[in-house]
Design a protein around this nucleic acid. Structure first.
Lengths: 255, 255
DNA sequence: CTAATAGTGTCTATTAGACAGTATGTT
DNA sequence: AACATACTGTCTAATAGACACTATTAG
């Protein structure tokens, strides 16, 4: 019944493109997440999710927007609450409740330079049975940890992710990150959430890459185009993306 | 940055059956929710969701289980976090953060008598355009309020529900309740969550009633049986439910 | 030329909707 | 007998998977 501190943590996701060895090929796509380096105790010099205290006169969603703008300069971004983290010992300073949000950004809109303590990390997952190895890579570092995928309810196929081995991430952010990635993946199947990660204009090929990345499987070209056709409109503009036929640029079509 | 109180609120849902005038017909089904009457200020004598403070040494999920058992006597119940409510003025005693959970119970398992301040309310929704009228009825009372359905993100079809007119419910529980109902409805489309509301053994007809209730539409008999066939196993037992052909009892089949 | 993606067409298998028709109990 | 639900079968339309085929560019 004692009082607690109240914070918010942000999972800021975007799509990263990396040049391919093969010059004819499309650039590889990665899901990437923005992390910041802590400059004070506890967990000084560890990476963590952007976040902070929720002010007295604001709600956690407003706090998230404020922090998101501070880190990226972006407003009007897709922002969804993904859960509450309230482990008794999650913050050594005293009991702290965190309301966590997922933000999806179109990285082509990023104009301002990142704050000097912030960095995008590419996400790679290696899944073996019910263990998942999470790899977060930037230019020079690789944060790596393993989680156990535990089924909570068979009927709804809801999972919990128990951290088995720790990386250099602060607090319980390993757990928040994997939960967020899985929430995102899940939404890809039932909604058009992917378009929140895409630039305004894109080719069907690029869109297929992102779907493929997030669903973790190859997609059949003709079937994909058929299904996606009702969700996009062609702009008429063409774009040349390499040693192959140019492609039409599309936009998302609201229903 | 000041400290806040931390509570949990529970949406305990179950399926209610009401006899029909027509004795041959199956009983009507309702989605019902357990409310309790507050016995102290603030909001004394108003109905509200079961809930309470989260203890220092427990997490909100544990607190929810504790409260659920106190109210229903049930353990091992489906329990899912549905969000955080953190409005600045939601509790007149001071800033209070509530982590809300949805519990789905099989009401046939309820053995103990309800606490004297608790009561099940049948839920009825009347939807007109983007307004929803919510009716919560018990034997003698009807709590009634209206909400506005506001789209937050077109791509994911996420909604917010703004309360337009208030009923005799305490705190911001009107908002929590409609959000919970909608979350449940949504899950019905993509998962087998309905079975968490069903008794161990049920007929396809009863199951169809519940699906129909939660999806808010009539279902085609043959198509429903075809789809559901892979999710249930017949027990072999027959049950007579009225002036018509007896039915086979089924159980949920895990995949 | 070749490699790579862009984009179309077509065959087939699966699935959903509609609806007719039979079965079997109580009122 | 009438009614209400239980349950099956069948026709058709829509959809998904597989895959072949053409188009167009840069290397």
């Amino acid at each position: 019944m004692s009082k607690v501190d109240y914070t918010t943590d942000l999972l800021i996701f975007g799509i990263d493109s990396k040049e391919n060895d093969n010059l004819r090929s499309l650039p590889y796509k990665y899901l990437s997440i923005l992390l910041v380096k802590r400059n004070k105790e506890p967990f000084k010099d560890k990476w963590c999710l952007p976040g902070g205290y929720v002010y007295e006169n604001e709600v956690s969603k407003e706090a998230s927007k404020r922090i998101l703008e501070k880190e990226t300069g972006l407003i009007n971004v897709y922002l969804q609450q993904i859960g509450v983290y309230d482990g008794v010992d999650r913050d050594p300073r005293g009991r702290t409740i965190s309301s966590s949000y997922m933000a999806l950004v179109d990285k082509t809109l990023l104009k301002q330079k990142l704050n000097k303590d912030a960095c995008w990390f590419d996400i790679e997952l290696e899944e073996l049975d019910n263990k998942i190895k999470v790899l977060l890579k930037n230019e020079t570092e690789c944060l790596e940890y393993e989680v156990n995928k535990v089924i909570v309810d068979k009927k709804t196929e809801e999972f919990e992710y128990k951290v088995l081995s720790h990386s250099d991430l602060a607090f319980d952010h390993e757990e928040i990150i994997i939960k967020g990635i899985m929430t995102l993946r899940n939404k890809v199947q039932n909604t058009d959430i992917v378009f929140n990660l895409m630039p305004k204009e894109f080719t069907i090929g690029q869109l297929k890459q992102v779907y493929s990345l997030l669903l973790g499987k190859e997609l059949v070209n003709s079937a994909f185009r058929r299904v996606i056709a009702s969700k996009v409109v062609e702009t008429g503009k063409m774009i040349k993306t390499g040693g192959h036929r140019p492609s039409v640029l599309c936009r998302y079509k609201e229903r």
